[in-house]
C-alpha cells in the first residue's frame, strides 16, 4: 500500500497537555508520506474512537504522560471493538513504565514506544503491521 493512502490518527487521551511528543510523531509521520490527523489534547476515549472511525484511520497512536495509560489505553481498544472497528491498530507512547507494557499488550495495544523512540522505529512498526495484514 502506498504510504499516502495509510491514514494514522495521533491522539492525546486523558487530561495531560504534554503534546511535544505527539506533535513530533504526527509531523514526522506526515513527512514520511503518511496521511496523519492529530486530535489535539484532552480527548476522551470516546472522542478518539469517533474520530478514528470518521477519519477512516488504519492506525491510532495514543500519547499519554500522566500515568493514566492502564485505564485509558485499553478503553480505546475496547470501544473500537464495540463499534466493530477492531481492525484499527492501536499503539501508544509516553512516560510508560516498562513493567506496564505486558499488561497493555495483553489488552490489545499492539506496540508501546517509550521515551527515546525514533521515528524510524515507528515507521518500521507501521510497515511491518501492514505487511503482516496483507498476508
Amino acid at each position: 500500500m502506498e504510504k499516502g493512502k495509510v491514514r494514522i490518527l495521533i491522539a492525546k487521551v486523558g487530561l495531560d497537555g504534554h503534546d511535544r511528543g505527539a506533535k513530533y510523531i504526527a509531523q514526522a509521520l506526515r513527512d514520511k508520506g503518511y496521511e496523519v490527523i492529530y486530535t489535539g489534547i484532552r480527548q476522551t476515549p470516546e472522542d478518539i474512537v469517533k474520530a478514528a472511525i470518521q477519519e477512516d484511520a488504519q492506525f491510532v497512536g495514543l500519547s499519554l504522560l500522566s500515568g493514566a495509560h492502564n485505564q485509558l489505553f485499553p478503553k480505546v481498544v475496547q470501544l473500537l471493538k464495540e463499534k466493530g472497528a477492531e481492525d484499527i491498530v492501536v499503539f501508544g507512547g509516553g512516560v510508560i513504565p516498562a513493567d506496564d507494557i505486558p499488561f497493555l499488550k495483553s489488552q490489545g495495544i499492539k506496540e508501546i514506544f517509550p521515551p527515546g523512540t525514533t521515528i524510524d522505529e515507528v515507521v518500521d512498526f507501521i510497515e511491518k503491521t501492514l505487511k503482516d495484514a496483507a498476508h
Binding site: G14, L15, T44, S66, G67, A68, H69, N70, Q71
Partner: peptide, 10 residues
Amino acid sequence: PLAEGEVGKV
C-alpha cells in the same frame, strides 16, 4: 467522568 484514570497521578 473525565477524571477516570487521572486521580492522584501527577
